[in-house]
Structures are given as C-alpha cells and as structure tokens.
Design a protein around this nucleic acid. Sequence first.
DNA 1: CTGAAAGCGCTTACAG
DNA 2: CTGAAAGCGCTTACAG
Lengths: 334, 334
Amino acid sequence: MTHDRAPTLDDVARAAGVHKATASRALNPATRDQVRAETARRITVAARRLGYVPNTIARGLRTSRTAAVGVLIPDLTNPLFPPIVRGIQDRLEQNGYTALLVNTDGDEARERAEFAALRSRRVEGFIVATARRRHPLLTEAVREQISFVTVNRSVELPGVPAVVGDDADGVTQAVAHLRSLGHTRIAHLAGPQDLSTGAVRLRAFQHAAPSSPVVECAAYTEAAGRTAAGHLFEHFADTTAIVAGNDLIALGALAVICARGRSCPRDVSVVGYNDMPFADRFRPPLTTVHVPHHEMGAQGAQLLLERLRDPGSPARTVLLPARLTVRGSTAPVR
Amino acid sequence: MTHDRAPTLDDVARAAGVHKATASRALNPATRDQVRAETARRITVAARRLGYVPNTIARGLRTSRTAAVGVLIPDLTNPLFPPIVRGIQDRLEQNGYTALLVNTDGDEARERAEFAALRSRRVEGFIVATARRRHPLLTEAVREQISFVTVNRSVELPGVPAVVGDDADGVTQAVAHLRSLGHTRIAHLAGPQDLSTGAVRLRAFQHAAPSSPVVECAAYTEAAGRTAAGHLFEHFADTTAIVAGNDLIALGALAVICARGRSCPRDVSVVGYNDMPFADRFRPPLTTVHVPHHEMGAQGAQLLLERLRDPGSPARTVLLPARLTVRGSTAPVR
DNA sequence: CTGAAAGCGCTTACAG
DNA sequence: CTGAAAGCGCTTACAG
C-alpha cells in the first residue's frame, strides 16, 4: 500500500534496541507488565515514531484468533437488515471483533460458496440471518462443530443459539387490536412457511383467529404480497382486515387494495410486521409490530462472543419482545 | 472452530503422496498447469476428501495480498448507504475481494481508529463514503500513498479517484421542473457545506435561481431539515417550492409544512434528492432526483480495483447521471 | 526482565 | 514436473 515497506515489529525492536519478542510483549496490553516499564516506554515511543501498525494477519496466523466473524444475510438492501447488521457491528466492535458481511440473495449455492470463503478467511464463527427451518448447510455446520448463532430466524436443530422476536405474541397483539376495532373478517397474508418467522406467525394467527382465511406468500416481498392479496380478495372479497407477514407484504396488500378502488384504512385495515424504517411516513402510516432489530443484532453478536469464549456453554435462545405500533393503516370497521 | 484441527496443505500433500509445494501448485488455478495432470487430479481428490479449505490468512501473509478492502461509511442505517454498499460488495466479490465495512457516525476520532484497525488487517485499499471537502485523514492517506477512492462525496485533493452523482445537473433539473409548474418563490434547504454534495448542490441552485432564499442544514437528517424549514418559513413565509438537500431534509420540510397547517403539494411543493428506497411510498410520494447508488458503489469498487492493479494509472473521476423523478410532492403553483 | 528459537500455513524462486 | 528451503510478521514456551 505504501512504497517503502510498512514497518514491522522487528523494525520497532531494532529502533528501540531490543529483541522483537520484547517489543511484542511491550506493545500487547496483556503482556506489557512482563517488561520493564522504562523499556516498554522506549518501545512504545519507537513504534509511534515509525508509525508502526501491527499486522493482524500475522498475529492471526500465529494465534489462530482472527477476531473476525462471518455474517450471513439475505440482502442488505432489504430494510430489515441494516439495523440488525449495525447492532452486530456495534457489539462486535466493542469486543475488538470485526464482521465480514455477505449477501446470499436466498440462493443456497451462493450461500455455500460464501460460507466456504468466510471459513477460508478463518472467521471464528458465524452470525446467520438466513436460516431456514431445514437448512442442510447449517446441519453440516453443527456436525463440524462450527460456532454460530442465528438471528431473526431460527433453524430446527438442537443446540443452536438464537435471537428471535416474540412473533407469536406480536401476531396475537395484532389480531387483538383488529378485534378491538370491531373487525371479524380478518385474513393473514402469511410469510414463506420454510422460514421460522413465517411458520410461527401463521400458527399464532390460526390460534388467535381460528378458521380465518390465510394465503401464503412466496417471499417476504412487495410483489409476493401483491399476488397473495389478489388471491385473497378474489376468494374473500368481504375481508375487512389483514395481518401481513411483514411490512413489505403489507405494502403489496396496500397496492392491491388501492388498485381495486378501495381504501386503507376506510375499507380495509392492514397491520404489517417489523416496523421497518420510515414505516411511519408511508401512505397511510403503517400500523405494524415493532421488532427491536438493532438489539437483535447486538444480542446475536453477544451470544456468539460468549460461545467463542466458552464453546461448552449451553445454547441460549433469546426472545425479544414485540410491540404493536398503532398508526394510520388500521381503523374501526364500518 | 472444529475439534480436530482443520486440515492443512501439508495434510493434503501427505494424503496424495506429494510435497506440499506440489499440492499448493495443483490447488491454485494459476499454477495448476505446472504440475502433471494426473498428479493434480490426485491432489484435488485428496483435498476434497479431507474437506480442505485453504487458509487465506496464511496465503495473505506470504503474498501480502489479502484480497480485502476497507469501506468507510457514515452509518449503515442511513437508507442512502445500503445500495451503495451492495454495489461495492457485488463488484468486489466478482473479483474475489471482500469488503470490510465500518461505520464512523461522522465522528473523526472514530474514523481514525477504524481506519487504523483496517490497515492493521492489511486491507489493500479503501472505498470512502465519508469524505469531507477538507479531510486531514485522507490528506495523510494520500501522502502515505494509501490506495483509496471516494464515492458519493469527493475530497478537495488532487489525484483521488471518485465516483459522484451529477449533483449540479440534478439540482438544475429540479429547479427547471418547479419553474415549469409556475413556481417563482423557490428556496433551497442546503446540505452541510463541508461536504462536496452540499456545496455543489448549493452552487447549482444559486446558479439556477439567483438570489433565492437558502438555509443551510447542520446535517443530512430529518431533524436538521425540520429546523432549517422552520427558519425558512419564519423569514420567507410566501415560499411555494423547496429544493431539499436530500430526501431526509425533504422529510423534515414536509413535517414542518404539515405542522404549520399547510399542505404539500397544494401549498408548497418539495423536491428531495437521492430517491431513497420507498420514497415512492411516502405521503406524499416524493418527487426527487434519482441517483444510481448501486451503480455508484460498483463503479467505486471498480476504480479501486483498477488502482490496485496499476497504482500508477491516472485518477479518474466518474460522474453518474442524475434523473429527476416526478411524483406527488410537486404540483402547479396556485 | 529479556533473548533466541520455533512455528502458525502458506508460496515461490531455486535446484534438480 | 517435483522437492527442499526460505520467509511472510507475528507470539510464546523455554532458558537464562
């Protein structure tokens, strides 16, 4: 990166008139007290003067501790993930760790390739936001004793730490809210059932509103929400309220309601899920279940860090509270 | 990460009955033809059987090529940056590189610390989305011949490659659009003037609408936009159109317009800048200048990659086209 | 308290 | 075409 080779520990040692082993000890806070204070000071000064930057790569090779973890997400441009990633980064950084972030776009082959690339960079563990309920790659990872935790979604595998939102409670709150507004014809636009969030939210909906219409969306996207909402209104035209699998699906539903010449919340109320950024600025402002995404990321990082420190510790699952946030997309039934 | 030590090149070599140097050559596509085809095959099979994953760290130490670059952004949860980062990641990945992403939160000390940490991880160069017009850290980086490019914003330093939007043209389009709607009392809520985007957009505005009101915002945030819009209406209550420094500032202006009992676009038209995700779903849907952020990131990565390949190549600046996107927040003057 | 030596897992000029 | 050796920049048990 620079023309004249970056200074090494040996350069510093020579400048301070000591052996590089001593320089190493002086510069590492954990071993600094093994060297005479005056010597240590001389070394520190020399290091600063030369602009010495320790080579983390070399240290990692020697100690096999890279202070890096891999983070798998579906797609950074999905508004759900930036706050989660930020939470991960913040907590990791507090502990001197770095995140290596990759997008899988929901593509299994791509995920495998990225996973291998991250392993070749010797990350110490993984934070996985791409978990599916059945997940061959993660099954193998467990078998190979690779440290990882999942966030937002969980995998149906014992012994995997996870941080998830209390989706069952969130959906229950959403249904109760709609009921309190007088709605009785409530439908669910369910998320993909191969994801834990999709399955848990659907089950909670069925429990809260037995024998109500359900249409499954192919993905957590606006387009999928639009398709599903189309089907819903074809078969259940008298629906007055929708619990959407997430905010993007809700956006799709909103578009369909509008396209059919009806209005939200006057004719149909809609509740989203996640409280994505700027959901309060939408037209109409979206009533939705808030999930603490930054906290989710931070706790996920915390769990992994604990795992790395003590691989034998029991796998914890952290359930984060969901909170219904009432805005303009829900109103009393007419 | 696993209990039984991960297999090394030496393990593979032994399994295949060759020297590790030969195994190295066989497994590296660039040197594979230096070894007899049959031998190479045997080695490949052994590698796969053992589940060998090359140690990028060790390779990096030996070759001093880490295939990693540092990416500096203000804050990942600012909706401007995910598409830029995604563009960077995508292009980098195509070239076998990885991005190490850090947030600075606009804090200079933090930026310095992160920069040093990234250097200690021996990134080969930097993609900087945090550039200020005067930027001591970047000035030093130039002096130390560190490879870097800026994206979105530029630094007033010669020889630094940059990818920026055509902000002057974007603002010119915005003003022309408002003029065509009959507006004559047009104001600018300018971005921070220590950033190139803030300065360029302001200059273009002053050129397009000489002696029109301008209020500078302290930051590219909704809160700053609210404050600035408050000042604007205090002094220029008859303003009928606003060109906002960016979409977040526009959102602040919208809130103030509403709070003053007036309505957008009926009483005041507002044009944003950036076309942030979901700007079309806002109330009202935001007329704004679209900037190709994914492309911006991709080109930034491309520029850096070229720089790394040929450090002597001249510093290019790429100007990406801006395109006014008319939606619901602008209307004919009453 | 400090030094000398070994070694982390690779790659690559140098021999043969 | 393959092997033996050196070395990338560190850390750390082992001596002294």
